[in-house]
Amino acid sequence: MTEQQEPVVVVGLVPNPRGQAALAHGLREARLRGARLVVVNASRGDALVDEEYLQGEALTRLHEELAGSGVPTEVRQPVHGRDVAEELATVVAETSAELLVIGMRRRSAVGKLLMGSAAQRILLEVDCPVLAVKAPPREP
Rank of each mutant, 00 (worst) to 15 (best):
A85V: 08
L48R: 07
P7S: 14
M115C: 00
A132S: 14
V8G: 10
G12V: 02
L62D: 02
H80S: 08
L37V: 02
N41Y: 01
L54G: 01
G111C: 10
D83H: 15
T90I: 01
L23P: 00
R121F: 10
A58P: 01
R107D: 06
A35Q: 03
R36M: 13
G81K: 10
E52D: 14
D127C: 03
D83F: 12
A85T: 06
V14W: 00
P15F: 07
Q120H: 14
D46L: 08
L123W: 04
T60S: 04
V75T: 13
R121D: 14
A85C: 08
E86F: 07
V110C: 00
A22P: 03
A93H: 15
L13E: 06
E86K: 09
V10E: 05
Q55V: 14
P15Q: 07
R18L: 03
G81F: 12
A118W: 01
V8E: 11
V91F: 01
N16M: 05
V11P: 01
G111F: 11
L27C: 03
N41E: 02
H63D: 12
R33N: 13
V38R: 10
E125A: 15
I122P: 02
G34R: 15
G68L: 10
G70C: 11
E125C: 08
A132K: 10
V92L: 08
D46T: 11
D50Y: 06
Q77M: 04
L13F: 11
A47P: 00
A24P: 00
A67F: 05
K134P: 00
L124Q: 15
E57N: 06
E64G: 08
L54P: 02
E94A: 15
G26M: 02
D50L: 02
R121W: 11
Q20P: 00
R107F: 07
V84N: 01
H80G: 04
L54W: 09
A109C: 00
V126K: 06
G81N: 10
A47F: 10
N16T: 11
A93L: 11
A93N: 12
V11C: 11
P129E: 10
R28D: 14
E98C: 14
G116E: 02
G81E: 09
V39S: 07
P129F: 03
E52N: 13
L131V: 06
Q55A: 11
A30K: 00
A89L: 04
V75R: 10
V71M: 11
A24I: 04
G116D: 02
V10K: 02
V126H: 04
H80E: 13
E52S: 12
